[in-house]
Design a protein around this nucleic acid. Sequence first.
DNA 1: AACCGTTCCAACCGCAAACGG
DNA 2: CCCGTTTGCGGTTGGAACGGT
Length: 250
Amino acid sequence: MAGLVFQHQMDYVKKGAWSTEEDQKLIDYIMQYRIWNWSHMPKFAGLSRTGKSCRLRWINYLRPDLKKGPFSIEEVEIVIRMYQSLGNRWSAIAKELPGRTDNEIKNFYHTHLKKHLGTKDEVKPKSRKKAKQIEMSNQKKPLITTCPNIEGPNDQSLDFTNSSSSSYITFDENYEILETSNQENDVTSIVNQVHDDNIVILESNPESSTSSSPSSVDLHINDFMDVSVHSSNVVDFWLDLYLAADNLKI
DNA sequence: AACCGTTCCAACCGCAAACGG
DNA sequence: CCCGTTTGCGGTTGGAACGGT
């Protein structure tokens, strides 16, 4: 009896993917009787599901006001902007995006943005065991990423455009500066040295930066990919980076 | 065609907050 | 205030789909 879990002695709950029949039962029931109690409603609707499963299915997939399809540029911008200010408060971010669910935004972040945005996750320890796990995970190597003109919590500000040579900078997860360099570095060797897919190396390129576009920077992704990014603030920068990366499928 | 690794997302789980008697 | 129940949240995972060899 795969996928069935006995809840009490007599009844069982189905788990796993929802069938179209189950979807229709849930839709029909809610359309007729509205949502009154998630935990009691499944048996009245003829569903062998937990209330929790029904709620999730409705909120994340069946609700008629859900927006389907890929995120628009405006939506991506909001996600990035909100994530910069709120961190992993997905439900709060979802409130700014009508028709999108917290789960959808969370998935979108993990699949499309995480490697570029780094992490701002605020993990709240729920137990001593959990706190210990967090402590251990924090001992891992720091996030390394770079961004032009970024202002971190300590008002550290970077300006790549005034540099006369290739530059890079590494941050930890709190945007504390770990290391800077203005030398002509072999960027590839830095990437290989750290073995971290999340690395983004930014290099200023004075030749390509004109006076009318002072915040233009060239993004060196690897030996085969270079992208120009023209952004004056961090949100626009990450948005441009997301779009560039998406185009290049990195 | 078969296999294998990767990506993506629907759905799960545990926990905490909110609710109500 | 207490305590049991319900709802909501965020992290995690199973597996389908896809791409490469």
